[in-house]
C-alpha cells in the first residue's frame, strides 16, 4: 500500500513528529511504500539544517533525511509555512536577501499542491499533529 504523511507540529517540544517518524519506519518495515512526507505549519521545523539535538535525544531532521535517502521518500516542506519560520533554501535565501539558507539537504520547498498530489497518488494519507 502507498502511504503519505502530513506532519504539522515542531520536531521539538511536541511528540507528534516522533509518532509520524515511528509510523513511517513501521510501514516501511512491513513492506509498504512511503511516497511523501509533507511538512506543514510548525511541521516545517522538521526540515531545519541548523539544529543540534541534545545528547540522548532524537535528531528528527537527521532521521527524516536518512529515512528518505534509504527508501526514496519525498520530503517536502510547505514553502509559505517555511518562509514565515526561517526555513529557506539557497534560492529563497537569495531571493529575499537573507543571510543564509537553513533547509536541510534531502528536503525541498514547495506548495500545498504537493500535499494534494500526495493525496491523489497514495492509498492512505495520515495527519500527525492535527
Amino acid at each position: 500500500m502507498i502511504f503519505s504523511l502530513l506532519v504539522q507540529e515542531s520536531a521539538v517540544g511536541r511528540q507528534s513528529s516522533h509518532a509520524a517518524y515511528r509510523f513511517a519506519c513501521a510501514l516501511l518495515a512491513r513492506g509498504h511504500t512511503l511516497y511523501r512526507v509533507f511538512f506543514f505549519a510548525d511541521g516545517v521545523h522538521n526540515s531545519t539544517a541548523l539544529n543540534c539535538a541534545a545528547s540522548g535525544e532524537a535528531d528528527l531532521p537527521a532521521l527524516w533525511r536518512q529515512l528518505a535517502a534509504e527508501h526514496g521518500v519525498d520530503l517536502v516542506s510547505c514553502v509559505s509555512s517555511a518562509l514565515r519560520r526561517g526555513i529557506v533554501d539557497e534560492r529563497e535565501a537569495a531571493r529575499h536577501a537573507l543571510g543564509a539558507a537553513s533547509l536541510r539537504q534531502g528536503f525541498e520547498l514547495s506548495g500545498l499542491g504537493q500535499l494534494v498530489e500526495a493525496s491523489i497518488r497514495s492509498d492512505r494519507i495520515l495527519d500527525f499533529g492535527g
Binding site: 514547495s110 506548495g111 499542491g113 504537493q114 494534494v116 498530489e117 493525496s119 491523489i120 497518488r121 492535527g130
Partner: peptide, 18 residues
C-alpha cells in the same frame, strides 16, 4: 510546483477543531 495529476479525484474532508 509541479501540477498534480488532476485526472484522479479523491474527496477530502478537512477538519478544523481549533
Amino acid at each position: 510546483m509541479s501540477s498534480p495529476q488532476t485526472a484522479a479525484r479523491r474527496s477530502v474532508l478537512v477538519v478544523c477543531r481549533n
